Simulated scan of single mutants.
Amino acid sequence: MQTYLEFTFKIEPLQPWNEILMAELIEVGFDSFTEEHDGILGYIQKDLFTESSLQNVSLLTHPEVEISYTYSEMPNINWNEEWEKNFDPINVENQVSIRAEFHENQNLPHEIIIQPKMSFGTGHHATTYLMIQQMLDMDFEGKTVLDMGCGTSVLAIFAKQKGAGKTVAIDIDEWSVENSKENAVRNNVELEISQGTGENLGGENFDIILANINRNILISDIPTYVSVLNDGGSILLSGLCFFDVADIMEVCTQQNLNLKRQLQREEWVSLWLEK
């Protein structure tokens, strides 16, 4: 079993910064969290952690929030078992159920079954909820789709359930790629899944691009996404806080993308744009 470090982060004020901190910590290798009354507990594999990695967590030096932390080594435990204990089924607009095999069927129009491993995108996070909510109103029938930063491939699986044609799922994380392959089989859908980044794009074009990542990667990669998006195609973006929208829209406007709809859940935002 992997040895983990447990970090205790004290956050003042707690909201909305606790969710934002978790999103940034995921980007540097943290894979699970517990919310406390005055902060969060974060967990990372010991062999993945370096002190320098926290320098990439910009929120730790943000002027509007005070964050302090301590950490210690955890005893070896079965983390998949612990994760399963805390994984609850998701209901999106009474239309989509995201659940594990050990949960009861909620009998909604759409059902996505995943193995709740440590990869991001189980639907618990508000941005995944927002992406599914946007997708409910989109026409996927026969469309070519790219799920960029796919995590568990929940979004790619839902696109296929809505009738998508060829659907490509890409993630930088090897664990996410393997989990995506398992989830595709579990949901009886065919996905082209690979490990990579925006640098791997360019060989083919898409009608719909789904990107639930984070603001910095989106700002960097939106021009690449647009270059492989068919005319009249749609891009769904999330992984954004409400205060990121202006910066993201500046890049989108430069790329001649038009905003069709913006949704917000808590402090998180999703943007539906068209080329």
Rank of each mutant, 00 (worst) to 15 (best):
N94L: 04
E24P: 05
E82A: 06
I208D: 07
L146T: 04
D137M: 11
T224F: 01
N212Y: 00
N78L: 03
I67W: 02
K162R: 15
N18G: 01
I235D: 03
S52Y: 02
M249E: 12
L263V: 06
D207W: 08
E19Y: 02
I219Q: 09
V226W: 03
N78Y: 01
L14F: 01
I26G: 04
T3A: 04
E81Q: 14
I26N: 12
A164H: 13
E19M: 05
I170R: 15
V228Y: 08
T127I: 11
L240W: 02
F242W: 03
V185T: 14
N56K: 09
M249H: 02
G42N: 00
G39Y: 01
V228D: 05
Y4I: 00
I112L: 01
E93M: 13
Q262R: 09
I113H: 05
V177K: 14
L60G: 04
D31Y: 09
Q195W: 08
P109Q: 05
G196D: 10
D38P: 02
A246E: 09
S194A: 15
D247F: 07
K160H: 10
L108W: 04
M118I: 14
G196R: 14
R215H: 01
F206R: 07
A184V: 11
V189S: 07
K275T: 12
G121I: 12
D173R: 10
I20E: 07
S58I: 01
L54H: 05
E192R: 11
T152C: 10
H62Y: 03
S97M: 08
G123T: 01
V177F: 13
T167L: 14
S153R: 15
E266L: 12
G163S: 14
A126N: 15
A159H: 05
F30K: 04
N105S: 11
P89L: 00
T144D: 15
F9A: 03
N86L: 06
A23V: 02
F120V: 06
S220A: 10
E192L: 15
I219V: 07
M74F: 02
G165C: 12
L263Y: 06
D231S: 04
A126P: 15
D38F: 03
H37F: 12
E141K: 15
D38G: 03
I193L: 13
E66Q: 06
V92K: 07
S58C: 01
Q95K: 15
D31P: 01
F120G: 05
E84M: 05
L271F: 09
N183V: 08
W175F: 08
I40G: 02
G202F: 01
F120K: 12
G121K: 14
L273S: 06
I132H: 11
I208P: 08
A211Y: 03
R265S: 03
T70R: 11
V168F: 13
N105H: 08
N187D: 06
E266D: 15
N94T: 08
N256S: 11
H110Q: 10
A164I: 11
L59C: 00
K117E: 09
N258K: 10
T224Q: 11
I209R: 07
K260N: 11
E111D: 11
